[in-house]
Computed example of a mutant assay.
Amino acid sequence: MDTLQLTNESTTIIENNGSNEESTLVLQRVNCPSNDNVINEIILPSKINGMIPNEVVSKPLFIPKPFIEANTSEIGLHTLKNECVIPVFSKDNERTIAHQEFIDIALESALKVFPHHSFDAPEIRVSHQIKGRTPDAIQKNVKDLLDHERTQYFERMAFIIRIPSIVETINGNEIALCLGGVRSYNLENLYNKKTIEKFKFFIGFQVKVCCNLAVSSDGFVEEMRVSSYQELESKILEVLQNFNAEKQLAQMKQLSEYSLTEHQFATLLGRTRLYQHLPKKDKVDVPFLSFNDGQLNSIAKDYYEDTSFSRNENGDINLWNVYNLFTQANKSSYIDTFLDRNVNAFNFSNSLLKTLNGSSNYHWFLS
C-alpha cells in the first residue's frame, strides 16, 4: 500500500511492497500562492524507476488559461480514450497511433527522464471534430440519434504536460518546465495503406502568469516521423534527454536585460506589417517571420494594455516582454501551426537582441 507524507520541505511517497524495506521517492515542493479557485491535478510517480503514475493529488498551481485558443476546445484524456473512435488507413484497415497513445507515450517517457519530479495532468486541446454514426443508425434523422449511435474523433490535437517541480523566475515571472506535442490527421494520407506517421513534439517552458509557451528550436521536432509505438517512444526520449534547459533559460534571461524604446518598438511593428507584402526578391534577404496581421494587431494592443508584459512608464519595453507579446498573440494560431510560430517568436526575439548588440541580420526590422 502506498502512503503520502507531506512536510514543508518535500513530498515523499513511501511504497511498501510487503517487505520490511521501504523505497522512497522525494519530490521537490513548489511554493504556490493560496487560491482555492485554482486547482491542478499533480501526477506523482509511484516508483523510483518512473513508469506509469498511479498517484494523483490536487494542488494549486497555474491560473487555468488555455495554452492555445483559436478554434480549439478542451477535452479530457478519459473522453479521448472512451468516447472517440480511432482512425485507420482505409486500404488495409491498419490503425493509426491514437491521440491518447501519443499522450501516454510522452508521459511515460518524461517519467523515465525525470523520475524524481511531479507532473500536472495533461492539458489537451482539440479541433476539427469528425462525426459519424454506427451502421444500425444509418436510416435515422440526426435529431433521433442516441448517444451510443454517434461516433467522433478529432482531426487535430495538442497537449502539454507541466513539470511544476522544475521552476525558474525570469524578470519576475515564474516559469515551469513543460513538454507536449501536436498530432494532425490532416497531414496523413488515411486513404492509403499504413505508412509513416507524423508528430510534432517539444520540451520547453510555460510562463505561469499567462500560460504562454516558450519553445526553442533545440527542444522542438517539427516532424517526428515514426512507424510504430516503440519508435515514437524512442524519439521522444531522445529529445528529452538531449534538451539543454540551462541554455534556453540563459537565452530568455538575457532578453530581460535589453529594451526597445517606444520609437524602436513602433518601427519594429511597422516593419513586421510591411514584411507581409515585401516582394519575393526582397523577402529573401530578410529573416523569416510567420505572424499574420491579426496577431500583429494583438501585439500592438497588448503593448499598451497587457497587465504583465506592456511598456513601462517611459514607453520602453524589454525583449522578454516583447517575446511574450508574440507568444500571447500566437495563441490565436491553429493547432497545426502554433508550435512552429512559437519557435519563430523565440528565434525572432533573440535575433533582435543580437541586432541591438550590433548584428546586421535583423537590422531591417529596426531600421
Rank of each mutant, 00 (worst) to 15 (best):
residue 195 T to N: 15
residue 224 M to C: 14
residue 231 E to S: 12
residue 156 R to M: 03
residue 176 A to L: 05
residue 179 L to Q: 07
residue 158 A to P: 04
residue 144 D to G: 06
residue 126 V to W: 00
residue 101 E to H: 05
residue 148 H to L: 02
residue 213 L to A: 03
residue 176 A to R: 09
residue 213 L to S: 06
residue 120 D to C: 15
residue 138 I to Q: 13
residue 193 K to L: 12
residue 214 A to W: 04
residue 205 F to V: 00
residue 140 K to Q: 14
residue 175 I to H: 09
residue 225 R to E: 13
residue 146 L to R: 15
residue 110 A to Y: 00
residue 108 E to L: 01
residue 216 S to G: 11
residue 149 E to C: 08
residue 224 M to A: 08
residue 155 E to D: 10
residue 166 I to D: 01
residue 231 E to D: 14
residue 103 I to S: 00
residue 152 Q to K: 14
residue 214 A to C: 10
residue 224 M to S: 10
residue 211 C to R: 06
residue 143 K to I: 09
residue 181 G to H: 08
residue 226 V to L: 08
residue 128 H to T: 06
residue 159 F to S: 04
residue 230 Q to L: 14
residue 207 V to P: 01
residue 230 Q to F: 13
residue 162 R to Q: 02
residue 144 D to I: 10
residue 152 Q to C: 10
residue 173 N to A: 04
residue 196 I to H: 14
residue 191 Y to L: 12
residue 146 L to F: 10
residue 227 S to W: 07
residue 157 M to Y: 06
residue 227 S to I: 12
residue 131 K to W: 12
residue 229 Y to D: 06
residue 202 F to D: 04
residue 212 N to I: 05
residue 206 Q to R: 15
residue 115 P to L: 07
residue 132 G to Y: 10
residue 148 H to C: 07
residue 171 N to S: 13
residue 228 S to H: 13
residue 112 K to M: 00
residue 191 Y to T: 10
residue 230 Q to T: 13
residue 141 N to R: 14
residue 190 L to M: 11
residue 133 R to P: 01
residue 115 P to I: 05
residue 140 K to Y: 11
residue 196 I to P: 04
residue 218 D to W: 03
residue 166 I to P: 01
residue 117 H to R: 13
residue 187 L to C: 12
residue 174 E to S: 09
residue 144 D to C: 07
residue 119 F to V: 02
residue 177 L to K: 13
residue 132 G to I: 13
residue 179 L to I: 08
residue 230 Q to Y: 14
residue 121 A to H: 08
residue 219 G to P: 03
residue 121 A to L: 09
residue 186 N to R: 13
residue 142 V to A: 13
residue 194 K to T: 01
residue 182 V to M: 04
residue 141 N to T: 09
residue 175 I to R: 07
residue 220 F to H: 12
residue 160 I to S: 09
residue 125 R to N: 10
residue 211 C to K: 04
residue 167 V to S: 09
residue 185 Y to V: 03
residue 187 L to Q: 15
residue 144 D to P: 03
residue 223 E to M: 13
residue 210 C to D: 14
residue 159 F to L: 06
residue 172 G to H: 09
residue 197 E to N: 11
residue 150 R to S: 12
residue 109 S to M: 00
residue 124 I to A: 05
residue 157 M to E: 09
residue 116 H to F: 11
residue 178 C to D: 07
residue 112 K to R: 02
residue 169 T to L: 00
residue 195 T to P: 06
residue 101 E to M: 02
residue 158 A to W: 05
residue 206 Q to S: 11
residue 156 R to S: 06
residue 142 V to F: 12
residue 138 I to M: 12
residue 152 Q to G: 06
residue 203 I to K: 08
residue 134 T to G: 07
residue 102 F to V: 00
residue 221 V to E: 08
residue 157 M to N: 12
residue 158 A to I: 05
residue 114 F to K: 11
residue 169 T to G: 01
residue 127 S to L: 02
residue 210 C to T: 14
residue 178 C to P: 02
residue 123 E to Q: 13
